[in-house]
């Protein structure tokens, strides 16, 4: 009787693992397929389209793809994306933390109203802002530069401000008071008390910001017209333009290459991401 129920439990566990693993593999199949196809030679790529493993793996696609188009190689696109992402993320996280301290720790007139305004801005569709913003930035002569992409990041982003405010509310007020008695200014309290304690939140925020900026497409598409200025996302779009001559092997290779930073970050830091999404309850 007991042996039977143990056997029953084991078979249930086995069934669970087989089923879940099969579903999970199905979900990542397209990405594995992209990686596998990028290593296939030109004759193989259309022969056994579905296979994950190239019979004769070659880096030919990567070499051909890296040359890019119009005389601009992927070195440029990769560098542009990296610079944009790192700068924008640093600006966003620092400015958002400063603003969050104001909202979380200082009582000032109109705070609740402004905080509500900030939450509401998360819901505004970007389409309504982008047209007037574009007009102003183009009058300033900022089109085809990174200024319209990076300067707005100096003013904090509502999602991260909200995330940091939530986190700061968990830091005991006694710490602020003790520091104040010791004669610390607001700036000192923020810098020496809050920032060190906020490291996990700042880190999680940086990862989210990195993802969103790395994958950002709409703003670079609108503001950057010169191929030398393209980020990876805009470059990939032109590179894979269906009306042009298309070397699918090279497109696969460059697409996969653009995903690598994102995938590596995910594997390294998925614990932070899972927590971030579960606690803010917002999209990721």
């Amino acid at each position: 009787m007991k042996a039977q129920s143990t056997a029953h439990r084991v078979s249930r566990t086995l069934l669970f693992h087989v089923f879940t693993a099969a579903c999970g593999l199905l979900m990542v199949y397209p990405i594995l397929w992209l990686a596998g196809s990028s290593l296939k030679g030109p004759s193989e790529i259309w022969r056994k389209v579905y296979s994950l493993f190239p019979e004769h793996p070659t880096l030919e696609n990567y070499i051909n793809g890296w040359k890019g188009f119009g005389g601009v190689s992927f070195t440029v696109y990769y560098r542009n994306s990296l610079v944009y992402t790192v700068l924008a993320t640093a600006f966003t996280i620092v400015s958002s933390a400063v603003v969050a301290f104001g909202f979380a720790r200082i009582r000032f007139k109109g705070k609740n109203f402004l905080f509500a305004c900030m939450l509401v801005t998360m819901m505004i569709p970007p389409q309504i802002l982008i047209i007037p913003q574009y007009i102003v930035f183009s009058k300033l002569g900022w089109v085809n530069t990174y200024l319209p992409l990076i300067v707005p990041r100096l003013f904090g982003q509502a999602f991260f401000i909200f995330m940091f405010v939530q986190f700061m509310r968990g830091i005991p007020l006694e710490l602020d008071e003790a520091a104040q008695i010791d004669g610390c200014s607001r700036g000192r309290i923020f810098w020496s008390v809050h920032l060190p304690l906020m490291k996990p939140a700042l880190f999680t925020g940086s990862i989210f910001s990195f993802y969103w900026t790395w994958n950002d497409f709409f703003a670079p598409l609108i503001y950057l017209n010169n191929p030398k200025r393209y980020t990876l996302s805009v470059a990939l779009r032109s590179f894979s333009d269906p009306s042009g001559l298309t070397d699918w092997g090279a497109i696969f290779a460059m697409s996969f290459l653009s995903l690598i930073p994102v995938i590596v970050l995910f594997i390294a830091f998925q614990r932070f991401l899972v927590q971030g999404i579960a606690t803010t309850g917002l999209k990721g």
Partner: peptide
């Protein structure tokens, strides 16, 4: 199961 969401929004 989460991997597709990580890469999903991208042009790639």
């Amino acid at each position: 199961f989460y991997v597709p969401s990580v890469v999903g929004d991208s042009v790639a």
